[in-house]
């Protein structure tokens, strides 16, 4: 068993497994409002899929797959989605993050359901993007690309 075989095995397994991991991540995210899990957990799983890819195919390949700009933009967009739900709730006359007044569906229950859904999606996107960012930031050995990033998801 040479080193090379090991690489082939991991690469092949990764190619197969990563889509499933991501699918699972999406499942966890979108079921955040009605079952265990949620945006954070799903986001971590989603991020982990990218990290797994980067570990196996190398940081450079990982960066080619998920560009820096992408993670930067998505970590912002996720928070904006979260905050946006709250603001929409305010605009339609409720309090910040008061889901059941959202103008979706017909009754408060459905509105609340969708409100939480969007929140979870927002959290998921941000967490995934931030996880990936943290990984690449700390993984890079190149001095010039060195970044520090302190914005976490509080």
């Amino acid at each position: 068993m040479s080193k090379r075989v090991g690489i082939i095995v991991t690469k092949t397994v990764a190619r197969v497994v990563i889509p499933f991991i991501q699918l699972f991540a999406l499942y966890v995210i979108v079921h955040g409002d009605s079952g265990p899990g949620g945006g954070f957990q799903g986001g971590v799983i989603l991020g982990a899929s990218v990290i797994l890819y980067a570990i196996i195919f190398g940081a450079k390949a990982g960066r080619q797959w998920v560009k820096q700009g992408l993670t930067d933009v998505f970590s912002s967009i996720g928070v904006l989605l979260y905050a946006g739900v709250g603001i929409v709730a305010m605009i339609v006359g409720g309090k910040y993050l008061e889901y059941n007044v959202l103008p979706i569906g017909h009754d408060a229950h459905i509105a609340s359901h969708y409100g939480i859904f969007f929140i979870e999606v927002g959290v998921g996107i941000t967490v995934a993007a931030v996880m990936v960012t943290i990984f690449f930031e700390t993984a890079q050995r190149d001095k010039d690309d060195l970044k520090d990033r302190g914005s976490g998801d509080g």
């Binding site: 700009g69 933009v73 970590s75 912002s76 904006l80 305010m90 914005s151």
Partner: peptide, 22 residues
């Protein structure tokens, strides 16, 4: 909604700034 705007305004601006900076 002033009390919450006080906190989320800087928060939202904080996440928008990377986008705007591009």
């Amino acid at each position: 909604n002033f009390p919450v705007l006080l906190v989320i305004t800087p928060l939202i601006v904080a996440v928008c700034i990377p986008l705007l900076g591009r």
